[in-house]
């Protein structure tokens, strides 16, 4: 049977990963354990992501259920973070809001990563005119401020979760694409790439098997450090009423609701702000620790 390029690519990549994977993972874990801030970041990330994944199981109340009970209540044993202006349990809303935040982060960063990789590899490996064209496009997109671009898009497409994802993806693609392009270009004239060409390897194979594994690592770390950025963008758009529609809970809408009633009770604003702070800190600490581990030039202990 003839093995096609793509399966061969996956095969050899999987092969490289399994051989090195175990050792490298263990090594990473050992280095990460020595980094206290990194460990703190990991714990925070695990807590936040875990609570979002299992939100349906752990929420004490239905986050959208309007209850006949105390409204704008301060924290109590019944409602650990109090209730909002409609009597909904704030803790449940915060936990469920994490789902929206991480869905947006995952979907938009996933899209941005894959398109960024594709465009970056094409620009870096393709002919000069294509590279120039892509650069112009990237810089053009990046010239828009994210929130303004978001507002304009929401006005055109209507507010929804998918609009938020679209906005974040479109504004992040040029950042990833530029990084991939630069690295690809630096690698293009490396001897091992020329050697592949001399053996008769086609461009898809060179890019998939030989260039991609060398650029993906730093890119993933960058993406993990971008998670807080995406989450705050989502919260910001939701706060402005341009993100998810009520009654779906999102950290941004919780903040917005709390903001309207801040004279009555500070608790909703505090409850909406804490998860954003925790997530931001967690991903930043973790991302920095991983960057220090994988980028030997910045590593201090070597």
């Amino acid at each position: 049977m003839r093995t096609s390029d793509t399966t061969a690519a996956e095969e050899s990549r999987a092969e490289a990963d399994t051989v090195r994977g175990a050792g490298a993972l263990l090594q990473t874990w050992r280095l990460l354990r020595r980094d206290q801030l990194g460990m703190l970041g990991l714990v925070l990330v695990v807590i936040m992501v875990g609570s979002a994944i299992f939100a349906d199981l752990i929420v004490p109340y239905d986050p959208t259920q309007i209850m006949v009970g105390p409204r704008m209540a301060p924290p109590s044993w019944d409602h650990l973070l109090g209730t909002d202006h409609l009597g909904r349990d704030t803790l449940s809303r915060v936990i469920a809001g994490g789902q929206v935040a991480f869905l947006v982060a995952l979907a938009s960063l996933g899209a941005a990563l894959s398109f960024g990789l594709l465009l970056g590899l094409t620009a870096g490996f393709g002919p000069q005119w294509l590279d120039n064209g892509f650069l112009l496009l990237f810089d053009g997109v990046r010239a828009f401020p994210v929130i303004i671009f978001g507002l304009a898009t929401v006005t055109l497409l209507g507010p929804s979760l998918w609009t938020v994802i679209f906005v974040v993806a479109v504004t992040s693609i040029p950042i990833y694409a530029r990084i991939v392009r630069t690295q690809t270009q630096a690698m293009k004239n490396n001897e091992f790439i020329v050697a592949e060409r001399a053996m008769g390897a086609g461009t898809p194979r060179i890019l998939g098997v030989h260039v991609l594994p060398n650029v993906i690592g730093p890119l993933l770390i960058l993406a993990s450090m971008d998670v807080p950025l995406v989450i705050t963008t989502e919260a910001g758009l939701s706060f402005l009423g341009m993100g998810v529609r009520p009654p779906t809970p999102s950290w941004g809408t919780i903040l917005n609701d709390g903001y309207s009633y801040i004279r009555n009770s500070p608790w909703p604003v505090i409850a909406g702000g804490i998860p954003i702070v925790i997530t931001t800190l967690g991903f930043t600490f973790l991302g920095e620790a991983l960057r220090d581990i994988f980028d030997p030039k910045l590593r201090k202990d070597l």
Binding site: R13, N190, E191, F192, A198, V209, H210
Partner: peptide
């Protein structure tokens, strides 16, 4: 063809 740099002409992530 064999290239000048013995290590540099081998793709670094492959066995």
């Amino acid at each position: 063809m064999m290239f000048q740099d013995p290590v540099g002409s081998l793709s670094p992530r492959l066995t």
